[in-house]
Computed example of a mutant assay.
Amino acid sequence: MIKRLRKIAILAALSAIFFSCSDDNDPANPDPDPPIAMDDDYIPIPESPVVLDMDAFPFNTLSEYSFFEGNMKEQNPVLGVIPYEPISTLFTDYAKKKRFIWMPSDVQATYAADTEVIDMPVGTFLIKTFYYTNVQPNNDTRIIETRLMLKKADDWYFADYIWNDEQTEATFSLSGSFTNVEFLENGEMKSANYRIPSEVECFTCHKSGTSSVPIGLKPQNLNSMYDFADGTENQLQNLIDEGYLEDNLPTTINTVVKWSDDTQPIEMRVRSYIDINCAHCHQELSHCDYRPMRFAFDESADPTNLGICVDPDESIPEMTKIVAPAQSESSVLYFRINTEAEEFRMPLLGRTIIHEEAVQMIGQWIDGLTTECDSEGGGDGED
């Protein structure tokens, strides 16, 4: 909105200048360049109130950035702070999330590929708030943390802000901690010892070699409609309209599906789920790149990258394959997502309880596979 308003203001100012000028050859106008008076029609160019200070980052409190207007816990973004939501979202102990992006004026992000994080300019903030509704015993809403990533010239940098009990302010900390949350999810009581990450844990999930990268800001994850405050629009097109993204997208984008949408093919749902939840570790130069699976959406069409008929690289009793077709109970993938044991669970970070709906979906997918594994641990992946 902010850059769109700037364009409108500039056009309005230029129009006022053009129509106020008379013919330079008119003898009644001996001064060809009269001064322009700022009258009642003057339209100031709007500026975002967000505070960007590279040297002072991270601030001690969240409010110092001025990302939100009014009561901060309502998370109403100020001018220039744009909400977004990946098509399939990462599971964090059933926490709900609000995500925003902000950029300085006169810079743009650029498209690299459907499967690659959009190339963000220096000064970009990514803002993500984690919260629960129906928190017991009073069915309250409780915000736990707001995580920031700031793009500097050499890398992305992290900051995390922990909300106080009064829900009036959040204070910087990257030391890591736990907090217990009891809440209702679809009418069922759940309890999580929610993990607030340390700086090392942030880097573990966002690692690419020695650098840090965002996870969900890829065209494949954002090519969807979103209900913005001023109307429903495709998220990528909205970023273009706001001036945040260069208008150079391809005509078609290979796009994930919403994993919880049971009208979609189950293989696409599974691939979309493990892309957002697992691929950031199971890829080259990332934390689990020594594992044989490659879970990125553009790689998981290959059944071997999904682990189908692939021998596990460590021995777990009664587990015969990473994905054993028609045998979810013998599949390492199913076992790891269906346990809370820290030494076995996957993802290792970001969850302490089981994502029951995803376990059911992945179990259904595995049990529906009809591939016959050969004796060498490979298969054609047909189902």
Rank of each mutant, 00 (worst) to 15 (best):
residue 251 T to M: 01
residue 72 M to W: 10
residue 328 S to T: 06
residue 23 D to P: 05
residue 185 E to K: 11
residue 75 Q to W: 08
residue 334 Y to Q: 10
residue 145 E to G: 01
residue 17 I to K: 08
residue 61 T to D: 10
residue 218 K to E: 04
residue 204 T to M: 07
residue 67 F to D: 11
residue 303 P to R: 08
residue 42 Y to R: 00
residue 233 E to H: 04
residue 62 L to S: 13
residue 374 D to F: 06
residue 197 P to S: 14
residue 270 V to A: 06
residue 60 N to S: 14
residue 27 P to I: 08
residue 131 Y to F: 15
residue 345 R to S: 07
residue 312 P to V: 07
residue 216 G to P: 11
residue 141 T to E: 14
residue 365 W to A: 02
residue 185 E to C: 05
residue 13 A to L: 00
residue 315 S to H: 08
residue 336 R to G: 00
residue 262 D to W: 07
residue 363 G to S: 09
residue 247 D to R: 03
residue 330 S to W: 09
residue 269 R to K: 11
residue 317 P to E: 13
residue 183 F to Q: 06
residue 305 N to W: 02
residue 367 D to P: 03
residue 87 I to G: 02
residue 369 L to K: 15
residue 102 W to M: 04
residue 182 E to D: 13
residue 267 E to A: 08
residue 25 N to F: 08
residue 22 S to Q: 08
residue 277 N to E: 01
residue 361 M to I: 08
residue 327 Q to L: 12
residue 52 L to P: 13
residue 67 F to H: 02
residue 1 M to W: 12
residue 259 W to H: 14
residue 364 Q to T: 15
residue 133 T to R: 10
residue 166 E to H: 09
residue 103 M to C: 02
residue 349 L to A: 03
residue 266 I to E: 00
residue 222 L to Y: 15
residue 204 T to A: 12
residue 176 G to I: 13
residue 133 T to Y: 04
residue 281 C to P: 00
residue 115 T to Y: 06
residue 264 Q to K: 15
residue 71 N to M: 12
residue 159 A to C: 06
residue 365 W to M: 04
residue 226 Y to H: 14
residue 147 R to Y: 00
residue 188 E to S: 11
residue 278 C to F: 12
residue 367 D to R: 04
residue 372 E to I: 15
residue 252 T to E: 15
residue 141 T to H: 07
residue 309 C to D: 03
residue 14 L to K: 03
residue 224 S to T: 15
residue 48 S to F: 09
residue 332 V to D: 04
residue 72 M to P: 09
residue 172 F to L: 12
residue 353 I to V: 15
residue 173 S to A: 10
residue 360 Q to H: 09
residue 142 R to D: 10
residue 362 I to S: 08
residue 84 Y to S: 02
residue 118 I to E: 08
residue 64 E to F: 10
residue 17 I to N: 00
residue 371 T to C: 06
residue 119 D to L: 11
residue 216 G to L: 06
residue 132 Y to Q: 07
residue 263 T to Y: 05
residue 301 A to C: 00
residue 126 L to W: 01
residue 96 K to I: 03
residue 48 S to Y: 13
residue 140 D to Y: 00
residue 107 V to S: 06
residue 326 A to S: 14
residue 174 L to V: 15
residue 212 S to E: 09
residue 316 I to F: 13
residue 336 R to K: 14
residue 77 P to Y: 07
residue 370 T to D: 04
residue 85 E to C: 01
residue 24 D to P: 02
residue 355 H to I: 08
residue 18 F to W: 06
residue 355 H to E: 13
residue 158 F to D: 01
residue 122 V to G: 01
residue 26 D to I: 09
residue 346 M to Y: 12
residue 359 V to E: 04
residue 51 V to R: 12
residue 279 A to V: 03
residue 303 P to V: 10
residue 32 P to N: 03
residue 288 C to T: 05
residue 255 T to A: 05
residue 75 Q to Y: 13
residue 36 I to H: 01
residue 105 S to G: 06
residue 197 P to G: 13
residue 332 V to L: 11
residue 334 Y to D: 04
residue 213 V to S: 15
residue 296 A to C: 05
